[in-house]
Amino acid sequence: MESAWPARFGLSVCAGLATARGVSTMMGDAMGWMWIWPAMIVFGLLVLGFLALVVTQYRPGGAVTTPHPDRPPARTILDERYARGEIDDEEYRRRKGELP
């Protein structure tokens, strides 16, 4: 049992002595790596923002959808009805004046 004690605790004693003398240990100075956490958070947010941009810009149909994309505007329908002879001149002018 006594022979296992130095093997189990010897490394931590040596590491403590080396740090006390100013020699770097295997882990190094832990405070030197503290910048990595904010950098990882910023990098993660940049990746998520890029993915959100890609998803919203390149989805089928574009970013703005209309309720009836295959339906022509009212003015076009009115012009077509007039061209086919479904409505006369007077009704065409009256309805054209009511359109926005």
Rank of each mutant, 00 (worst) to 15 (best):
R94A: 08
A74G: 03
E86R: 09
R71W: 12
A83S: 10
R93W: 15
L46C: 07
I87P: 07
R75S: 01
I36K: 12
L48F: 13
G61F: 12
F43C: 05
Q57P: 00
V47A: 14
D88N: 13
L46Y: 01
R81G: 03
E90I: 15
P72H: 02
T76E: 12
R71Q: 00
L46R: 05
L45N: 12
L48G: 11
T65A: 14
D79G: 06
Q57L: 13
A63M: 15
E90A: 00
A63W: 11
I77R: 14
R94C: 04
M34N: 03
T56W: 08
L46S: 08
F43D: 15
G61I: 13
P73E: 00
G85A: 01
E90C: 02
M40A: 10
M31A: 12
E80L: 11
R94P: 06
D88S: 04
R95I: 07
V42S: 01
R95Q: 15
T76S: 06
T66I: 14
R81Q: 10
L51W: 15
R95Y: 09
P60Q: 11
A63S: 05
T76I: 05
R59I: 13
F50E: 04
T76V: 01
T66G: 13
Y58M: 00
M31L: 05
R81V: 09
G32H: 03
E90D: 14
Y92V: 14
A52M: 09
A52Y: 08
W33C: 03
G62D: 04
Y58W: 04
V64E: 05
L51C: 03
R94M: 15
A30E: 06
V54H: 06
T65V: 04
P73M: 07
A83I: 10
A63Q: 02
L45Y: 07
W35I: 10
T76G: 01
D79I: 01
R84D: 06
V55I: 03
V64G: 11
H68I: 11
W35R: 10
Y92G: 08
Q57T: 00
L78V: 10
Y82P: 01
D70W: 15
L46Q: 03
G49Q: 10
T66Y: 10
A39F: 02
P73L: 09
R93F: 09
W35D: 04
E91C: 10
P69R: 15
R81M: 01
P38H: 10
F50H: 06
Y58R: 07
L45G: 06
R59S: 09
L46W: 14
A83R: 10
Q57N: 02
L48Y: 02
R84G: 13
R84F: 11
M31W: 11
R95V: 00
T76Y: 10
P72G: 03
D89L: 08
D89P: 07
D70I: 10
A83Y: 14
A83W: 06
V47T: 05
R95S: 04
A83F: 07
Y92D: 13
R81I: 14
R75T: 04
E90F: 07
W35K: 05
P60N: 13
I41G: 00
I77F: 07
P72F: 11
H68D: 12
L45Q: 14
Y58D: 00
